[in-house]
Design a protein around this nucleic acid. Structure first.
Lengths: 114, 114
DNA sequence: TGCTTATATAATTATATGTTTATATAGAGG
DNA sequence: CCTCTATATAAACATATAATTATATAAGCA
């Protein structure tokens, strides 16, 4: 199985999506662990429609995967995406967000589903 | 000397700049070797003002360095930039542009200065 | 069926962005 | 000093984008 390089066009498309502060942080969270929309709203302190619209762009580009569980919709990074390695490298440059996720836990704002 | 991580804001700013096809390719060229504006115009097949405006954004963000030599202005990647490693990782994902630079040579469109 | 919660979508608005056209600047050489 | 070349900047325009407000959908539960 040959690994074909990404085209400049593919790369710039991904970078354009991650070139927005909100989407970059969303990607970092869903890379770290599966999150539902309301958690992202809480973590990023932004309106639900705004988060949903950003998620839609990420989903359209197949950078994230969704999974519905009852009322909630969970998102996680799509490890199958051709640009996954690029995305991983980018996220590695960011300061850790584990504290923020732990804060969510402490405030019992975490949605736990299987 | 401690290496301080980039903030999400810094990263998204860089990604936004590289999230444009033209600027991404410019960065790849000036990463590979110092290029003058007219070479980039030729390589990217775009108007001179358009290239100049993209270069300005890259220069304002200190992603590239300029050097004037006679009538020509040469640009190269700024290895001192805090996001240099990130930029390098991104460029590594791109298909090689060495052929294009060699084509320039063959057509004698290369500006050689010390 | 009707109510509630979580999420998605649509419409609107304000702002940002890329390209073109036209013009300015800066240096080289007569 | 004038002219030519390379590059930069400014103005104008068209398009894209992000956020908000309002509304729709979808699932759970009484």
């Amino acid at each position: 199985m040959e690994k074909v390089a990404l085209s400049a066009h593919e790369v710039s498309k991904v970078l354009k999506l991650l070139g927005d502060n909100t989407r970059l942080k969303i990607m970092q969270y869903v890379f770290e662990q599966e999150c539902c929309v309301c958690e992202l709203v809480e973590l990023l302190n932004m309106s639900q429609p705004s988060i949903s619209q950003h998620l839609r762009k990420l989903r359209d580009a197949q950078l994230v995967q969704e999974r519905r569980k009852g009322n909630w919709v969970f998102y996680k990074v799509n490890v199958e995406n051709r640009a996954y390695n690029l995305i991983e490298n980018i996220i590695r440059e960011l300061p850790s967000i584990k504290d923020n996720l732990e804060d969510l836990d402490r405030q019992n704002l975490r949605i736990i589903c299987d």
